[in-house]
């Protein structure tokens, strides 16, 4: 699939679509919205190939694009869908299905606990835990100060710990 300006859109998709999908799904908690946002990002890249010229870290740049697009989407959604966001855990889980019942229970509870966090804390947690970015990298990707990234992570992880501690302890003992 050749692009007029020589942009290798297939390579970009193969290298970055999966992490962007996971990030957007965790942020929006809606599969249709995630697809629309991914489409929007790749169309933007295809229409403006110069966006990536001079970019050193493609992943960080794309996460930033994804984050901005997701924020725009949430603003567009308005009050109706902000309510939906609060019940997102009931609709979409960002985690792969588990066979083991204990693990399934833990993932479901984790998905629900994540959904209760503010979207900005969830974004930082996602990038730290599942993208393994440093606070500096997260700060660059989300255009926030590193200390803000660190404090959002701390608040978020403390809430998850409080909520999931009993399950975490229980399943650890079982192991």
């Amino acid at each position: 699939m050749k692009m007029p300006a020589g942009l290798d859109i297939e390579r970009l998709y193969d290298e970055h679509a999966q992490p962007l999908f996971a990030f957007l799904l965790n942020f929006t908690r809606d599969e249709a919205d995630t697809r629309d946002l991914l489409q929007e990002i790749f169309v933007k890249l295809a229409r403006e190939p110069k966006l990536l010229s001079g970019v050193r870290d493609e992943r960080a740049f794309l996460i930033r694009l994804a984050h901005n697009a997701a924020i725009d989407l949430i603003r567009r959604r308005g009050a109706r869908d902000r309510t939906r966001e609060n019940f997102a855990a009931e609709t979409v889980s960002p985690f792969a299905p588990a066979r083991d019942p204990d693990e399934k229970y833990f993932r479901d509870e984790l998905a629900a606990a994540l959904a209760e966090l503010p979207a900005e804390q969830r974004a930082v947690l996602h990038l730290k835990l599942w993208e393994e970015l440093t606070f500096g990298e997260i700060a660059a990707a989300l255009d926030i100060p590193p200390n803000t990234a660190a404090s959002r992570y701390r608040y978020g992880i403390d809430k998850l710990r409080d909520r999931l501690r009993p399950i975490h302890e229980e399943t650890r003992k079982a192991e």
Partner: peptide
């Protein structure tokens, strides 16, 4: 938490998203 596997992107999306992107470009 970090060991919990994330959902995979649906395989069918690739062709659709790239087709639209190429058409738009």
């Amino acid at each position: 938490l970090s060991r919990q596997p994330l959902r995979q992107i649906p395989a069918g999306w690739r062709a659709e998203i790239l087709a639209v992107a190429v058409r738009e470009s």
